[in-house]
Amino acid sequence: MTEVLTGPRVARLALRRRRGGRQGSHVVAHVILATGAVLMAFPFVWQLIMSLSTNAEVQSVVPTFWPSELRWQNYATVFERLPFFSQLGTSVWITVIRTLAQIILCTAAGYAFARMRFRGRFLLMGLALSILMVPSQAYLISQYQIVQGLGWLNTVAGIVAPGLFSAFGTFLMRTAFLNMPNELEEAARLDGASPIRIFWTVMLPLARPSINVLAITAALWSWNELLWPLLVSTYQDQMPLSAGLATLVSDKNNTDYPVIMAASMLAMAPILLLFIVLQRRVIDGLAHSGLK
């Protein structure tokens, strides 16, 4: 790695050397990281290529790395053959509803658990915590019955109902509120503000970073979730995209691979675009979800 060393560059290299003598290894690091990155990104690229190919090209024994012609009409076919827009609509709906509900319910409860005193506080916290330890499948049979009993099968209400409430989110928000200084709250109280006003105008703005993490996890999970929507919706045009795609493949007769690829690309696109726009926040937020 021969480089012309200019002033600031020398300073930076000196700094690197001081911080552990790791200069010079960057070529190796880049080779390893880039190889890995190519492997990680390859399936997405391959999916895009296949979505623009013909069925024969997709199924040729020697892979077609570039289709003879880019067949954008495969994407048009998705809209003709599948209730794509209604599935997209369901996905958007359930994601928005559950994300908003989790933000409202979890911040409110997390705030009360962190900063209010009331009888039964520890009992309620213990109960909420206990559901974190149980794998989600354990609830499914009974949740299904409840939703069925309410007449909510095949409705948006049925898909979203259990996911409106999150113990994970509640404890995430509780920790956030526990870590906040007391002075602002006291000052607002002395000014005669009601608890709900203090919560809304003083505490919520301070909790923004944690609310972001909550919103990201809720939205990601909601958009991508498969098993529950698959259980409670039986009609293709009322399913979210995840379940719709899964039923598309379990249909043995459907072997129009380029169209399946195009549909998958379209199903992933909204959340991937959102991620690319918000990448810094998403990655930083989730990275610190692991630190105590």
Binding site: A243, M261, M265
Partner: peptide, 12 residues
């Protein structure tokens, strides 16, 4: 890959 929908990447 972490944010991508499992059902959709399963296809490819």
């Amino acid at each position: 890959p972490y944010v991508a929908m499992p059902t959709a990447v399963a296809m490819v």
